[in-house]
Computed example of a mutant assay.
Amino acid sequence: MSRHRARRRALKILFSREFHDEMDIQFTETEILADDDETIVDRKSEPQAIGEEELDENAVNLSEIEDIRTEADSDEGEADTEKYCEYLVETVSLHHAELDALIRSFAKGWEPGRMNMADKTVMRVAFCEFVYPQDPLAPAIIINEAVRLAKEFGGVRSSQFVNGILGAYARTLA
């Protein structure tokens, strides 16, 4: 599941950069990656459908979308994981302000500065994959991955919040 692992690593690095300067002596991204390697269990599975209780009026329900490519289809090993992680970190860092503007435009009544930092970072990664894709992915895959990361790293309602904002954006693509 290299793409999920790459997204997870990128999220940790980008989140950490919100609080630490790159030259911070207490902070090294290699430590984040080493910790990730020790704690993650590799699993190959299909993206999990989002439960009805997690949907809002803008959400995308994955159970309605056919032919979702699984993470296993894109698994080309550890080199692919590292490459995809680097792409996400570099692209999100380069387009930070633009991605925040996208978040702001779809998060009616919410300023990115007031948002949960994990939620905002998850959405930056997802919008990066929408706007600057390394490989074209179905919107459902991007949203599902973001919701999975929001469940893992965000607050109680993070998955609904992230799903609603990304779902609203995905509807503009149709």
Score class of each variant (00 low, 15 high):
residue 57 E to T: 12
residue 76 E to G: 10
residue 40 I to H: 09
residue 130 F to E: 05
residue 53 E to R: 01
residue 75 D to K: 06
residue 123 M to F: 07
residue 155 G to L: 13
residue 133 P to I: 04
residue 14 L to G: 02
residue 131 V to G: 00
residue 47 P to L: 15
residue 134 Q to W: 09
residue 162 V to G: 06
residue 27 F to G: 01
residue 71 E to H: 14
residue 27 F to K: 03
residue 1 M to P: 07
residue 151 K to D: 12
residue 55 L to D: 03
residue 108 K to T: 10
residue 35 D to K: 15
residue 153 F to K: 06
residue 70 T to M: 04
residue 104 R to N: 08
residue 127 F to E: 01
residue 37 D to H: 11
residue 70 T to D: 11
residue 120 K to W: 08
residue 40 I to D: 13
residue 90 E to V: 05
residue 16 S to W: 07
residue 158 S to L: 03
residue 62 L to D: 02
residue 36 D to P: 00
residue 167 G to R: 05
residue 124 R to H: 07
residue 58 N to P: 00
residue 143 I to N: 11
residue 85 C to L: 07
residue 21 D to A: 06
residue 26 Q to Y: 14
residue 129 E to A: 08
residue 91 T to P: 02
residue 76 E to V: 02
residue 105 S to T: 00
residue 88 L to T: 04
residue 23 M to S: 13
residue 148 R to T: 13
residue 169 Y to I: 02
residue 55 L to F: 04
residue 31 E to G: 09
residue 29 E to N: 01
residue 25 I to S: 13
residue 110 W to K: 10
residue 44 K to Y: 14
residue 64 E to D: 15
residue 110 W to V: 06
residue 50 I to E: 07
residue 174 A to S: 14
residue 93 S to C: 03
residue 109 G to Y: 05
residue 16 S to T: 11
residue 135 D to R: 11
residue 142 I to P: 00
residue 90 E to A: 11
residue 139 P to R: 04
residue 163 N to M: 03
residue 24 D to L: 00
residue 68 I to H: 02
residue 126 A to L: 03
residue 162 V to M: 06
residue 117 M to E: 13
residue 105 S to P: 00
residue 18 E to L: 15
residue 25 I to E: 13
residue 96 H to N: 10
residue 117 M to T: 14
residue 40 I to Y: 14
residue 136 P to A: 07
residue 98 E to I: 00
residue 40 I to G: 02
residue 15 F to R: 07
residue 83 K to T: 10
residue 74 S to C: 07
residue 4 H to V: 08
residue 6 A to F: 03
residue 28 T to N: 15
residue 99 L to C: 04
residue 9 R to K: 11
residue 41 V to N: 12
residue 25 I to Q: 09
residue 28 T to G: 05
residue 148 R to G: 06
residue 86 E to S: 10
residue 168 A to W: 01
residue 59 A to I: 04
residue 159 S to P: 03
residue 168 A to G: 15
residue 75 D to P: 01
residue 7 R to M: 09
residue 49 A to P: 11
residue 93 S to R: 09
residue 80 D to E: 13
residue 120 K to Y: 06
residue 6 A to C: 04
residue 108 K to E: 11
residue 144 N to M: 13
residue 50 I to C: 03
residue 125 V to R: 02
residue 83 K to C: 04
residue 29 E to S: 09
residue 90 E to S: 13
residue 64 E to S: 11
residue 98 E to A: 08
residue 139 P to E: 00
residue 70 T to K: 08
residue 31 E to M: 14
residue 166 L to I: 06
residue 53 E to W: 00
residue 126 A to Y: 04
residue 52 E to Q: 10
residue 143 I to L: 03
residue 142 I to E: 05
residue 74 S to W: 12
residue 41 V to Q: 14
residue 94 L to N: 09
residue 167 G to I: 09
residue 18 E to Y: 07
residue 75 D to Y: 06
residue 54 E to I: 01
residue 22 E to Q: 07
residue 120 K to C: 06
residue 26 Q to C: 09
residue 145 E to V: 07
residue 154 G to W: 05
residue 6 A to V: 04
residue 22 E to W: 08
residue 62 L to Y: 06
residue 161 F to L: 13
residue 168 A to R: 15
